[in-house]
Design a binder for these strands. Structure first.
Length: 569
RNA sequence: CGGAGCGUGGCGCAGCUUGGUAGCGCACUUGACUGGGGGUCAAGAGGUCGCCGGUUCAAAUCCGGCCGCUCCGACCA
């Protein structure tokens, strides 16, 4: 294994991080010279970073294969028709990088591969005898994200490991799914990143159910709802919660004047009642249809839940003039008297009687508004957002909310793609059936960013041994033949033993070399200086430990092996 | 796409309010001293001040347009 020399390494370390780096991992990746930005959400990966990415890929590959999946490769350039066939050309539309070939045929740069793998399946698989199947690839994905952010966390070009499974029935599918799930835990553990699996919304990928693997960190962009007691964990976008007891009474419906009171907070203050005793109206355009959503005053409408409840593809809040056009009075809107067909109510307002709601007249509210008696809705569903302090639906403890980064997402696709694309197989009974599909993604660069975020200190990166660009960072100190000779000896001993060695052969001061070693974060630093050599000594320092320890030059290999073995991974 | 901010040597920044000579720290080159936690001295190299247009005798600075990047929101590995 050739030794890498710092003087020859492509890339340089920076003392100060570029100003647009926010998070620790982004700053360290830039300062250590591992990545360089080319455009918003587009990065180059310099040699050390590429080493790490390849190690991560190798871990992923090993775990995928252990789970029974076969590596393959699908094209990144795809005809747009494929996406029309699945019906995702529109829903995925804005994110698709479109391009035209010389014959003016519209192609896309693939953001994911459900379509192409389903196409592949129908061309390759005919019989139940061919099932189950599990395939994966590691390949560049392209997504024209509305907003790249957070360094490597959200980019427009990235490597994804995406796996796909095909099964004859649900039972068989579950086996594939469970194997993948376990593989994911293994991957993150081996990369040194703690994760929690949470229930998630499957979003643009589709399907019935999905789980995300989340690395909990303040720099995360997802809100995760967690129950410490029973272990319930879900993305806020779909987290369930218990709405508690109803507070209102079911007295007679009466009007109350509330001039200038247009917010729930002001209303509760004005009437001296808790916000839970009010009903909140919110207006959305759902698949082009103005929709009146009602939740209890202390809650917020969750647009994703709203869409799911209505089986809709698109939802956005109504503009004030659109609200008026629909005949509703913002600030004083009431579900009473509104066509029930356009009303959707959250569970919280259906169980609770006697709420204060708008009167559909400027400056007026109603007391004791009760569902079923005074109004009704076409749809009653869970459409409210869970947040910190709400009660757990499973065990009644208080839910907590934390930020997190989505490092992986696994989906139970069912027949979401096989149906529209008419992928089928012939079963043992001679009947044509539709395969049950699953898909499973991991963003490789994002995982690297998480590794750094989870493994750093104020001096730099503290790479886990499993994915470090270099195992051992040799720091020669002082000139002279004695040092050069000892360095050469140790270098070859270590690299012959299979370690990946980086030697700082630059004519720099000790401080510069030590600081760069800390920044680059190899698990073990071996210092070879003229001072120590007088006693026949070299010095070993684990990056994860504060203090170095001496070792005899003659026993360098043994000492290094012991030090490396003391590390996890 | 809505909101906010920033574009001045490789990196971090000042200069802009009040137009006139482009500056500082780090990094870089050469030499000397130095040599175990970002050293000192000396001498250097390096900038169409994001782009286009306007105002002006004169624009980094004022005005307009555009582009790029970052952050906050709607979307996701």
């Amino acid at each position: 294994m050739p030794v890498t020399r710092m003087s020859r390494l492509f890339g340089r370390t920076l003392r100060e991080a570029p100003a647009d780096a926010d998070s620790a991992n982004h700053q360290l990746l830039l300062r250590s010279g591992l990545i360089v930005q080319l455009a918003a959400g587009v990065y180059s990966f310099l040699p050390p970073a590429w080493r790490t990415l390849r190690k991560i890929e190798q871990i992923v590959r090993e775990e995928m294969e252990a789970a029974g999946s076969q590596e393959m490769r699908m094209p990144a350039i795809q005809p747009r028709e494929l996406w029309e066939e699945s019906g995702r050309a529109d829903s995925y539309g804005p994110v698709l990088f479109n391009l035209k070939d010389r014959r003016e045929r519209t192609m896309v740069l693939a953001p994911t591969h459900e379509e192409s793998v389903t196409d592949l399946f129908r061309k390759v698989v005919q019989s139940y005898r061919d099932l189950p199947q599990s395939v994966f690839q590691m390949q560049t994905k392209f997504r024209d994200e509305p907003r790249p952010r957070g360094g490597l966390v959200r980019v427009r070009e990235f490597i994804m490991k995406d796996a796909y499974t095909f099964d004859a029935d649900d039972e068989a599918f579950q086996l594939n799914y469970d194997a993948m799930r376990q593989a994911y835990y293994n991957i993150y553990r081996r990369c040194g990143v703690p994760v929690v699996a949470v229930q998630a919304d499957s979003g643009a990928i589709g399907g019935k159910q999905s789980e995300e693997f989340i690395f909990l960190t303040d720099i995360g962009e997802d809100n995760i709802i967690l129950c410490q007691d029973c272990g319930y964990a879900a993305n806020q976008e779909r987290a369930e919660f218990d709405r508690g007891e109803s507070t209102g009474s079911d007295g007679e419906l009466t009007e109350v004047a509330t001039p200038g009171i247009t917010t729930i907070e002001a209303l509760a203050d004005f009437l001296g009642i808790p916000q839970q005793a009010t009903a909140k109206a919110a207006f959305f355009l759902v698949d082009g249809e103005p929709t009146f959503a009602v939740v209890r005053g202390d809650l917020e409408v969750n647009e994703l839940k709203l869409m799911n409840a209505l089986d809709a593809r698109d939802a956005r809040p109504l503009q004030p003039e659109e609200v008026a056009e629909a005949g509703w009075v913002a600030g004083y809107a009431s579900p009473i008297g509104v066509d029930p067909a356009r009303v959707i109510a959250d569970l919280s307002v259906v169980d609770a009687g006697g709420l204060v709601a708008g009167a559909n007249r400027e400056g007026m509210h109603l007391h004791n508004v009760t569902y079923g008696r005074d109004w009704s809705a076409a749809t009653v569903a869970d459409i409210a957002t869970a947040s910190e302090g709400d009660s757990c639906a499973q065990c009644d403890s208080n839910l907590q909310m934390q930020r997190g980064i989505e490092l992986g997402h696994i989906f139970k696709l069912g027949t979401r793609y096989a149906d529209p694309m008419e992928a089928t197989f012939l079963d043992a009974d001679g009947e044509r059936k539709t395969p049950i599909m699953g898909c499973y993604g991991i963003g490789i660069e994002r995982l690297m960013a998480a590794v750094v975020q989870a493994n750093h200190d104020e001096l730099g990166i503290v790479w886990p041994r499993s994915v470090a660009p270099f195992d051992i960072h040799i720091v020669p100190l002082g000139g002279g033949d004695e040092v050069a000779e000892a360095v050469g000896q140790v270098e070859s001993e270590l690299s012959d033993a299979g370690w990946q060695v980086l030697t700082d052969d630059r004519d720099e001061r000790a401080g510069v070399k030590f600081n760069d070693a800390d920044l680059l974060g190899a698990p073990l630093r071996v210092t070879i200086g003229s001072r120590g050599l007088k006693q026949g000594q070299i010095e070993l320092k684990l990056r994860s430990e504060p203090e170095p320890s001496p070792a005899p030059l003659s026993g360098a290999l043994t000492a290094v092996r012991a030090a490396m073995d003391s590390l996890a991974g």
